[in-house]
């Protein structure tokens, strides 16, 4: 089937989408957007997190057909061209990126958290990022990056 959706502000078509296919697969394999990562395909790791109509979701658990006609924002859509978003800058500068596999999902989740709650407490950060696993950093640098991103936004 064909789906048509708005991704990062742009209308896009994807053809030959299999009916059981996930939005994550369509993004990575059909739409040339490999930023969202596929690490578990079962909702556990959050590395595939994208905004669907403004709400962060695991794109591996959304059927591509469910995103037809909807708005999707991926990690690729947060910065302005080559200019990284402040959340992305904070992650880079705070050493919160090692292998980088978890990073796109964490960036989207952090972006969403700071939109809803510009000055989160540490427990609020941990709760908001509970659906994003990182196997490298031990999370301390990620906590630093989120606190830093909150300060930058002020």
């Amino acid at each position: 089937m064909r789906i048509n959706l708005t991704i990062n502000g742009e209308r896009r078509d994807a053809d030959d989408v299999w009916e059981g296919e996930s939005l994550l697969y369509a993004l990575r394999e059909r739409l040339g957007l490999p930023g969202s990562k596929n690490a578990c395909e079962q909702g556990e790791c959050g590395s595939c997190t994208v905004y669907l109509d403004g709400t962060p979701v695991c794109s591996c658990l959304v059927a591509a057909g469910q995103a037809d006609g909807r708005e999707v924002t991926t990690v690729e859509g947060l910065g302005q061209g080559e200019d990284l978003h402040p959340v992305q800058k904070a992650f880079v500068e705070r050493g919160a990126v090692q292998c980088g596999f978890c990073t796109p999902g964490l960036i989207v989740s952090t972006h969403d958290l700071l939109q809803r709650n510009p000055r989160p407490s540490d427990p609020e950060i941990r709760e908001a990022l509970a659906g994003n696993l990182c196997r490298c950093t031990g999370y301390e640098k990620i906590m630093d990056a989120v606190r830093d991103a909150a300060e930058r936004a002020e």
Binding site: S22, G43, C60, L61, G65, Q66
Partner: peptide
Amino acid sequence: ALAGGTDVMVEINFDHRRPPALLDLT
């Protein structure tokens, strides 16, 4: 039936289920 997909899509991704049709209720 397919609502949030948080059960159904896991089963499809892992080939545990191949229904003849998905009925999206969203």
